[in-house]
Write a protein that binds this DNA or RNA. Structure first.
Lengths: 200, 200
DNA sequence: GTCTATAACATGATAGAC
DNA sequence: GTCTATCATGTTATAGAC
């Protein structure tokens, strides 16, 4: 639900969540302490346990919110594309929506893509259902857009695209020369046409 | 130098390094303790300080060895391609060599690609020179292969490709259905031609 | 080169007052 | 809902014996 990011009533729980998400992005799960999260929230470490039963539960909440943001962005993009048939437009718009979730929707999605794999097994297990449902949306999209390819091939292509997109969280600076939109176009073009356009 | 991986004389230092690399891959830097590394080596935690002056220095050594493996693999691939002009062959062979370094050359390279960005700033700074020299090799390769593109474009394409390649460390299972060679072909094809081949 | 022992400190978590 | 105080444990790192 991206708690605390959209409404005025920012509860104490949401403020803890916001602070935690930001710190997890910068320092990872193990590298972030409850004392740091508490300090960033403006409370003391012990008080966090009024909102979450453990550090792991807090992490699960952050990662889950991260996918929810991505899922919402995906659905919105899909709605806005209802009247279009152009494969390239569909791909570009969904790539843009995924990157936008990472760079323009707070730290939740960024925390998800950067620290899902390094999360403790129990945390990953708790997050996997929603994460799977997001991946299924992409798989289904690809099956519609590329009916000539088989499921296995498309899954591989999706993993390659996800790798390229999620890695941007590690090197792309939205305040730099390139905008998120331009980055989305570059990745989408690359995914659709490759680099053959540059061959001499 | 990939210490301890190639010769018979496996020094105590190299055995610590090997154990550390493997644990860093599985648990990350902060998630791995000196006691675990010592136990995996067959010594006690305090003894590690005979070989390395700190945990950070040990991490730096692992990450640096990881790039050295990649650099060696790159140079070898380049030598073996001396007689070929085919752009696709060059790209495929270098992609294969990069993936081979991750999946078939011990845990050093894997540790590098999975935990470079989450490493402490001082560690990253110590590793950056060699890392840069590897990236420059790719940039130079691309400028030769795609003379029609400008430097900025090629840097962006390289980052997209690196994202796709390095992310495989997180999901690809070399013991599964797909071989490393097949994975390399898929990524290389995707990079060169995109998915347009599947468009209806 | 490895050991034991320990210093010095940080961590997640709990209990009970306000 | 937040506080203080504290527990139990784990952490890197050091010192000196063997």
């Amino acid at each position: 639900m991206g708690v605390g990011l959209q409404t005025e009533e920012i509860t104490g729980r949401a403020r803890v969540l916001d602070a935690a998400a930001e710190l997890f992005v910068r320092q990872g799960y193990v590298g972030t302490t409850l004392r740091q999260i508490a300090a960033a929230t403006g409370i003391k470490a012990g008080s966090i346990y009024h909102h979450f039963e453990s550090k792991e539960a807090l992490f699960v909440a952050v990662l889950n919110d991260g996918i929810v943001v991505m899922i919402d962005a995906f659905d919105e993009a899909q709605s806005s594309l209802a009247g279009t048939d152009d494969v390239a437009v569909h791909v570009r718009e969904h790539v843009r929506s995924h990157l936008s979730a990472i760079f323009e929707n707070g730290p939740y999605t960024t925390a998800h893509v950067t620290s899902f794999f390094s999360a403790p097994a129990e945390v990953r297990a708790a997050v996997v259902p929603k994460r799977d449902s997001y991946e299924q949306k992409w798989n289904q999209l690809f099956e519609v857009l590329f009916p000539a390819a088989n499921t296995k091939e498309l899954r591989l292509r999706r993993l390659i695209l996800f790798g390229a997109m999620n890695a941007t969280a590690e090197w792309f600076d939205p305040a730099g020369n390139l905008t998120v939109d331009q980055l989305a176009t570059a990745i989408s073009d690359q995914f659709l046409q490759g680099v053959t356009q540059y061959e001499s």
